[in-house]
Amino acid sequence: MKMRARQRLLYGRLLGAVAAAAVIMAGWVFWPSVPERHADPNDALQVELGEAVYRNNCASCHGVNLEGQPDWRVRKLDGRLPAPPHDETGHTWHHTDEQLFRITKLGLRPPLAPEGYQSDMPAFDGVLSDDEIWAVLAFIKSRWPGEVLARQPSPDKGNNR
């Protein structure tokens, strides 16, 4: 009797490990990699392009001055949150460039948001090129004060969120 229970427990653990490995592998295979580019707030050409792209594609929700929509922390009647600011008063700088790139390219959805989370943030894949997305991020970062820019997490700082 004890042997069967141990075998079932062992098989259950083995099956769980195989399932977990399959989920991790599927994530690596199906989750698009981020191109090896970056958002450089000191690159004047990238920032200039980013400002133009931002004004044409992002400002209508996130504000001309990156101020976001009013009461951005209070859910609307449909349960969704208004567009947050991208200036230092928001939480954009709490995310790595890679996370911001993915949110912009793919929209705000799992695994970048909790399961079941609904957002008005569209996916810009097919609308903006990768270079345009990186440029928008460079423009946004160029508007942050130095102390905020220094606090943004990055993989090389070891504080990836």
Rank of each mutant, 00 (worst) to 15 (best):
D120M: 14
W31L: 01
A21Y: 11
G116Q: 07
Q152G: 04
G68P: 04
L128N: 05
N57L: 08
R55L: 14
H94M: 14
F101D: 03
D97L: 06
L81G: 00
L128V: 08
H91K: 11
P32C: 08
E51F: 02
G158Y: 14
L49C: 09
D125L: 11
G90W: 11
E51R: 15
P41M: 09
N160E: 15
V34Q: 00
K76G: 00
Q46H: 04
S142K: 07
S129F: 09
G63T: 04
G50D: 05
T104Y: 02
E98A: 11
L149I: 06
V127K: 11
A19D: 09
V53R: 02
A83N: 07
N42Q: 12
R75N: 11
R37W: 05
A83K: 00
G126M: 05
R102M: 11
R73M: 14
G126N: 11
G79L: 05
A59Y: 05
Y11G: 00
G27R: 05
R6K: 10
N42T: 13
H91Q: 13
P84A: 12
P70C: 08
A21E: 12
L15M: 08
T96H: 07
L45M: 10
P111T: 06
V23T: 13
L137N: 03
W72Q: 11
P82D: 03
D40H: 06
E88L: 08
P153G: 07
R109Y: 05
H38N: 07
E98Q: 14
M1N: 10
P84Y: 04
L10W: 15
